[in-house]
């Protein structure tokens, strides 16, 4: 079961983030890449170089949009001007699905430009799910919400993060962008078992996965996206792939960005775990037929 309705039944393979330091290499060398993930906000502009580059990329590659400012969990209503710009971009890229984070980051129109954790309550889940539905209906594209890494928890929370993720996605009937690095980071910061999280997520809703690197500090771990993926995260990814099936996967590398080749090679390491999951799945199928 490689694809589902939350990623329009596509089998996208392994992608990487489209980042400025790689533009020249990509446009000149046209390397073989399954797909690129773009940060929507970088292209929600009226003209100029960003859209010129995007159009050149779209001529050659499949692109999926990933946002950082929809703030599904903010109490504020969705901003119409923002949605209008986003829809114009959706039409331009023909993204098969669109992802953004299960978080908040603005209130009263003031933006923190951060992905702040949600209070895990039923009221917050209802509000967030309503907003996801509104956005999906306006944009007319499947939505996947991504779990964020977090460094704080609220007293008012009534459930675990994975229960909240399930509650929101069931209510909104949307997909999940499962970031296994974020699960690892949050598990370390809050002291839960990351495998409990993975096993608690509705696997049939996972339309995409993220892997990334992080940085360890003395008392907490920060989601920095400036390293190769660490081994415990790959192990989580392997488990997630076994549980959810082969899923469109993307490596995030946003700071101290190395060469294109290095980033792509790191992303392609996911193939080994995918092959392992596929072999396991084939073995199970054979066993069923015997």
């Amino acid at each position: 079961m490689p694809a589902n309705r939350f990623n329009r039944f596509t089998e996208y393979g392994i992608g990487i983030g489209l980042r400025v330091p790689h533009y020249a290499h990509i446009l000149e060398k046209k390397p073989v890449v399954d797909w690129f993930e773009i940060i929507s906000e970088n292209f929600m502009v009226d003209g100029g170089r960003p859209l010129e580059v995007l159009d050149q990329i779209l001529e050659q590659y499949q692109v999926v949009q990933h946002g950082v400012s929809m703030y599904f969990g903010s109490a504020d209503k969705p901003d119409r001007a923002h949605l209008k710009r986003l829809k114009a971009l959706v039409k331009r890229t023909k993204t098969p699905w669109l992802s953004d984070h299960l978080c908040w980051g603005s209130v009263d129109g003031t933006y923190t430009h951060d992905l702040l954790p949600m209070p895990y309550t039923f009221a917050a889940a209802r509000r967030t799910a309503d907003k996801i539905r509104q956005v999906r209906d306006y944009l007319e594209v499947p939505i996947c919400v991504e779990n964020v890494s977090s460094y704080a928890e609220y007293h008012v929370s009534e459930m675990t993060e994975w229960e909240f993720l399930s509650e929101v996605t069931e209510r909104a009937d949307c997909g999940i962008l499962l970031d296994v690095n974020n699960i690892y980071v949050s598990a370390q910061n809050h002291g839960f078992n990351p495998y409990d999280y993975l096993n608690g997520v509705p696997a049939e809703r996972v339309g995409q996965m993220h892997v990334a690197g992080h940085t360890k500090f003395e008392k907490y771990i920060l989601d920095t996206h400036d390293h190769p993926v660490l081994d415990p995260v790959w192990q989580l990814y392997a488990h997630a792939t076994k549980r959810c099936g082969v899923t469109a996967t993307l490596l995030e590398w946003d700071d101290k960005i190395p060469s294109f080749g290095e980033v792509h090679d790191e992303a392609l390491k996911a193939n080994a775990f995918i092959a392992e999951a596929e072999a396991g799945s084939a073995r199970s199928e054979i066993a069923l037929h015997l």
């Binding site: 702040l116 209070p119 009221a123 509000r127 609220y154």
Partner: peptide
Amino acid sequence: LRSTADLRTLQ
């Protein structure tokens, strides 16, 4: 946290 108003207050 029982309502959107509570959520807004917290945020």
